[in-house]
């Protein structure tokens, strides 16, 4: 499940008013989330949730749901 806070961080970073983000949404489906901007989204998430991702953990994510799960695991640690 994509949480409200998680979604808001992404939308704010990409300057989007609203966009429907589901677990199986992929980054390339979200306007503005390209391979260059990707890093800004990751940094924004790290800052907002005060977590630190390892490179391989982010590379493993196939969709936004995976990224949400990664944040959840980090928060539960």
């Amino acid at each position: 499940m994509i949480t409200e806070k998680f979604k808001k961080v992404i939308l704010d970073e990409l300057n989007l008013d609203d966009f429907d983000i589901q677990d199986n949404t992929t980054a390339d489906q979200v306007p503005g989330w390209d391979s260059l901007n990707h890093i800004n989204v990751i940094l924004a998430l790290e800052k907002a949730f005060n977590v630190h991702f390892k490179g391989i953990e982010v590379l493993r994510c196939k969709n936004i749901g995976d990224l949400q799960n990664l944040v959840n695991t980090k928060l539960n640690q």
């Binding site: 391979s35 260059l36 990707h38 890093i39 800004n40 940094l43 490179g55 590379l59």
Partner: peptide, 25 residues
């Protein structure tokens, strides 16, 4: 190269933000 070189480099250099992107590119 985007998946296996650029993306890992970009993650490594992420604290440099735009400059990190530039170096990785």
């Amino acid at each position: 190269l985007l998946d296996y070189l650029f993306a890992p480099l970009q993650m490594k250099l992420r604290n440099l933000r735009m400059y990190g992107n530039a170096i990785a590119l």
